[in-house]
Nucleic acid binder design. Structure first.
Length: 106
DNA sequence: ACGGTGACGCTCA
DNA sequence: TTGAGCGCCACCG
């Protein structure tokens, strides 16, 4: 069947790693990929967050790209930008200002 | 400095 | 079941 009614361990790790990000901090897809033990597969991370059944539970809006761009989000990148502002993260034109300042690393 | 392509894991139809 | 796409990143020319 290949149709997984249950999420894979990889997904679980992605959501867990995302929830580990403290408020006011952000992380890149690559960072999350390394946290889950799948470096170089940042695509799978983005896909997992997009399909994550715990959308309000997982702060997927804290996940940004390596260059600091918010990228694309399911609920609308503009809304995410607003949420990031509420957390104290400076975002300008869909891009994190001082990404390294807010970048969360393991 | 810039642009385009390859590549990984997972999901959808 | 198989084939193709995705919220990407890194490398190469």
């Amino acid at each position: 069947m290949l149709v997984r009614n249950a999420p894979t361990p990889f997904h679980q790790q992605v959501w867990k790693a995302t929830k580990l990000i403290p408020r006011g901090k952000v992380a890149t897809y690559s960072t999350i990929a390394q946290m889950v033990g799948r470096p170089g597969s940042a695509r799978a991370v983005g896909n997992a967050l997009n399909k994550n059944p715990y959308a309000p539970l997982v702060p997927c809006h804290r996940i940004v790209r390596s260059d600091g761009t918010v990228g694309g989000f399911a609920s609308g990148s503009e809304k995410k930008t607003n949420m990031l502002h509420s957390e104290g993260v400076k975002v300008m034109n869909g891009k994190i200002v001082g990404l390294e300042n807010y970048l969360y690393k393991k």
